[in-house]
Each structure stands twice: as structure tokens, then as C-alpha cells.
């Protein structure tokens, strides 16, 4: 049942050593709500469990990783540099939907981390291949 339910399988007591594909979907801009920061914290913690973790950025979520964020004057922590730490956590699968970039007049060069830009169709395929998809 582990592979068919798609959820986290609490019943399987011998689950240690099973590597699942986790995708965190980010669709919110960084400072207006807490979603982006919460997602990032969950991602960092998930790295400790040696799972196959990927991040997807769609819609306003792409604004989380644009270059040049300076938050001093709004008195909030600028957590954008933390996305560059993900590589050190062995989280290297960052996917960005091209349509979301296009809608916002952004390109890959505007982003502060190396990402894989893909179409909606490719994103759909990535999502459908996951064991667990958590949306923020």
C-alpha cells in the first residue's frame, strides 16, 4: 500500500530505508504571508531524513527566488540567501514553471539559484511522479 496511497504511510513499521519522492510546491510571494518561510523550514528539516526532495516554484512562488531582495526597511528577515544553502543540504532539484516566469516578465537570469525551468506539461509530469506533494 505504500506506493498506492500517496500519503505518508504510518502503518509500515519497516519503512526505514525506504526513500520516497517528496515535492514541496511553492506558490506564494515571500513576505506578504508566512507560507514561503514555513515551506523553506520544512524543506531544511526534510533534508535530515535522506529522502528524495524537490522544490517546485509556480505562480508568485517564483518571487521567492528573485535576485536583489533587501528587507531591512520592512524589518523582516531576508531569507532569500537560504535558498543558496540548499545545495549544501543535498537538495538540488529546483523546478520553476516557465509560464509563471513569463507571466511576471522574469527569466532564469533573474533567479538567485540554479534551477531547471520547465513547461506546465513537464511540471505536471514531475508532480505525478511524486510519492508525496506538499503545497505551500
Amino acid at each position: 500500500m505504500t506506493e498506492s496511497t500517496g500519503g505518508i504511510d504510518f502503518e509500515d513499521e519497516d519503512a526505514s530505508g525506504v526513500i520516497k519522492k517528496f515535492m514541496f510546491v511553492n506558490r506564494k510571494a515571500p513576505y506578504g504571508t508566512i507560507y514561503a518561510l514555513e515551506s523553506l523550514e520544512v524543506v531544511l528539516i526534510s533534508a535530515a531524513f535522506d529522502q528524495d526532495v524537490s522544490l517546485a516554484f509556480l505562480d508568485d512562488g517564483v518571487y521567492q527566488i528573485v535576485k536583489g531582495q533587501h528587507t531591512k526597511a520592512i524589518a523582516m528577515k531576508n531569507f532569500s540567501p537560504t535558498y543558496r544553502a540548499l545545495e549544501g543540504y543535498d537538495i538540488e532539484k529546483l523546478y520553476v514553471e516557465k509560464e509563471s516566469l513569463d507571466q511576471r516578465g522574469l527569466t532564469e537570469d533573474d533567479l538567485l539559484v540554479d534551477v531547471q525551468v520547465m513547461s506546465s506539461a513537464e511540471m505536471a509530469k514531475m508532480m505525478s511522479e511524486q510519492d508525496v506533494v506538499i503545497s505551500f
Binding site: T5, R27, Y35, M127, F136
Partner: peptide, 12 residues
């Protein structure tokens, strides 16, 4: 429905 599909996503 949740059980029939291989995975699911709750969009926020």
C-alpha cells in the same frame, strides 16, 4: 478518490 489515485495535491 484519494485512495484510487497514486498521489494527490491540495492546492493552497
Amino acid at each position: 478518490l484519494v485512495a484510487e489515485h497514486s498521489n494527490c495535491q491540495s492546492w493552497l
